[in-house]
């Protein structure tokens, strides 16, 4: 299989995923989440195979903008879920929860409006890219899908290894690991029997959950701090939440840094799945 044929198929799939989630934005519970995943995947594919593509910068910026404009809605949604776990103390958190739900609704609607405005242009642009095959780069027409994927995997692994597992790098590592996983996932489709890939994917998903959890806690802490002045009646509950998240973050961060260091030292051949 030639790289560009497979790549084209992948892009078409992701675009149709984005389209269907956009259509079901208000009718499907997980639409916001699924839509963001599809956007992030599409963006990641363009980025990880950048070397082999003629990438339209405007297209990439649009995708980045889509993600950025949905960040608050997504973070608020996660925070509401967290607070729901504490629903036995609902009297403490009632005001905060009401505020967050309102905020979530506003942010979700803002994101939808932004998408509605630019979605058609985005679709036209990406369709043109596919139809005109303008993403193809001279010199790589005959390259096999597996060759380029393995090369990209190796490059991504090297990139990850350069980043030191430290507190300040956790978010960066989370993004790079995610890209690595996305490449591995498309590779898995052509190598379903490869046990190594299966095992690595499980490991990466678990790692991703841990890194995601840490990132969410950091974001929640900052966001809650900003709410202290907006919701003075809930200041005690907000402060208690901040302290809880902080102590949790400290423990979780320590564990995840340890795990990342372990992976960095002992899992050095991440590009080799043959």
């Amino acid at each position: 299989m030639l790289f560009y044929d497979v790549f084209e198929e992948i892009i078409i799939n992701q675009v149709s995923e984005i389209e269907s989630n956009f259509k079901e934005f208000y009718t499907k519970d997980e639409a916001l989440h699924d839509l963001r995943v599809a956007i992030r995947r599409l963006l990641s594919y363009f980025l990880v195979f950048k070397k082999y593509l003629n990438t339209d910068t405007q297209l990439l910026n649009t995708l980045k903008f889509f993600l950025k404009s949905s960040n608050i809605a997504r973070d608020t949604q996660i925070l509401i879920e967290k607070i729901n776990q504490l629903d036995i103390f609902e009297n403490d958190l009632k005001e905060l929860k009401t505020y967050l739900e309102k905020e979530y609704s506003i942010q979700k609607s803002n994101f939808y409006n932004i998408l509605s405005l630019s979605f058609d242009d985005f679709l036209i642009k990406i369709n043109q890219t596919i139809v005109q095959k303008s993403y193809r780069k001279d010199g790589f027409f005959d390259f096999k899908f597996e060759t380029i994927t393995f090369l990209s995997l190796n490059a991504q692994a090297k990139k990850i290894k350069k980043i030191k597992p430290a507190k300040k790098n956790l978010h960066k590592l989370r993004i790079e690991y995610k890209k690595y996983r996305y490449i591995l996932e498309i590779l898995q489709k052509t190598q379903v029997q490869n046990q190594k890939i299966q095992e690595r994917l499980i490991q990466l998903r678990q790692l991703q959950d841990k890194l995601g959890y840490v990132q969410d806690l950091s974001v929640h802490i900052e966001y809650l701090k900003s709410l202290k002045t907006i919701l003075p009646n809930s200041i005690n509950a907000i402060q208690a939440l901040i302290e809880t998240f902080k102590s949790n973050l400290k423990q979780k961060r320590k564990k995840v840094i340890f795990l990342l260091s372990f992976l960095r030292f002992f899992e050095i051949n991440w590009g080799e799945y043959a």
Binding site: Q85, A240, E243, T244
Partner: peptide
């Protein structure tokens, strides 16, 4: 117990 310790315990249980 402090409010945050109660939340933290609940979080750990969950």
């Amino acid at each position: 117990p402090s409010q945050s310790s109660i939340y933290a315990m609940k979080d750990f249980i969950e």
